[in-house]
Design a protein around this nucleic acid. Sequence first.
DNA 1: CTTTTATATGACATAATTGTTACACGCTAT
DNA 2: ATAGCGTGTAACAATTATGTCATATAAAAG
Lengths: 231, 231
Amino acid sequence: MSTSKQVLIVDDEAPIREMIAVALEMAGYQCSEADNAQTAHAMIVDRQPDMILLDWMMPNMSGIELARRLRKDETTAAIPIIMLTAKGEEENKVKGLEAGVDDYITKPFSPRELVARLKAVLRRATPKGVEDPVAVDGLMLDPVSHRVTSNDKPIDLGPTEFRLLQFFMTHQDRAYSRGQLLDMVWGGNVYVEERTVDVHIRRLRKALGKQHDYLVQTVRGTGYRFSAQIA
Amino acid sequence: MSTSKQVLIVDDEAPIREMIAVALEMAGYQCSEADNAQTAHAMIVDRQPDMILLDWMMPNMSGIELARRLRKDETTAAIPIIMLTAKGEEENKVKGLEAGVDDYITKPFSPRELVARLKAVLRRATPKGVEDPVAVDGLMLDPVSHRVTSNDKPIDLGPTEFRLLQFFMTHQDRAYSRGQLLDMVWGGNVYVEERTVDVHIRRLRKALGKQHDYLVQTVRGTGYRFSAQIA
DNA sequence: CTTTTATATGACATAATTGTTACACGCTAT
DNA sequence: ATAGCGTGTAACAATTATGTCATATAAAAG
């Protein structure tokens, strides 16, 4: 899971937080915890988690109050929220949804259910935009069908090579260091050797074949560049 | 009711969306929701719903603006739209109809009325051949008779496999993640494991047999794609 | 023409993803 | 109830992808 999501758990009862955290971590998420709305708010503004699990009933500021506040702030408005509530508080569901909550789980719930709904919400929260195909020489990459063709002949690439090529084709004529490529293509927070980039470059070139491997150019002492100009 | 229709509900007020969604789901429709015109537009282009319920008044882009935009785009022009509007906005009715809206309901309305008019619109609109048979290679799916044939030999599919195939055949050459497939084929509000998709893919492939199983292609690291192009 | 440094390449072990089968549960109709 | 079907999950197998070496080549530097 290279792009593991940050989940903030807000609940005043420590055992519950623990339980949730364990479940989520087993599912590959990274968790932070807060035991009240105040510190939660601070943490959210500061760390911008990908998702918030928010208990309904808490001392001082209630969960819903926090939700409202987050929705008003532009920098936090888009973060999906799942409300946790005790059985029998169903009437509050409408209020919750009014406050912009994305989903709603009543305690007690199974870890499995929690993870499932969390996934569903995350899925929905990221509407995938429509991307246009890019082409150079006779090489075309279509993000929609997720296909690459060299003069109409299909080329098959591993996921990483695909992302690498996609990045290159949308950032042509510019040299990137291995470090930059790791950031952009692999995603910032993975630790892999820079040499790994070389290997994937090699794999990409191989897949492109004689016809198009010239597009991937090495910039000695710096990194690599994708360009149609034979430098 | 295995040929359930996808309805997108666009309204900025969550409780209203909820209410509508519940009503429609009880009537056998599958619902997605959007709370603003922007994301609605993205979802429409992406998922091509069978029907759109569109609130008149919304922040940023108004419903009518979205309607106009959809009508201009060839890929979305045929999707029927029902406008929701508050009482006393009757004057806008003309504008709405000018913009290509198919019907018009004033709030408040009963769920029963909504469903009735939705059915009526769907019946007479029958958007660009959603009810027409589709065929690829020698594989044909006829939504009306609810039949699938491979070179005129009948294939029998379970309900889910049928919907999956139908979705694929009407959305060819696009890679879909398991999550997206769950949203589109299973319906937005179910919480099932993503791996379940794999199993149904398998069942579908098996049913298609050697003759046509190549149409269902796996896009490693992403999901699946239905295409006649071998790759 | 060496030496030094940087990149290319092929091979591997391991990790991640997908395919496949089996099974249990809930429905429906008998 | 019972039998049959459709579904979702779990478990295991098969396949593919990834990162890291070790080594070969190639380009600059001396």
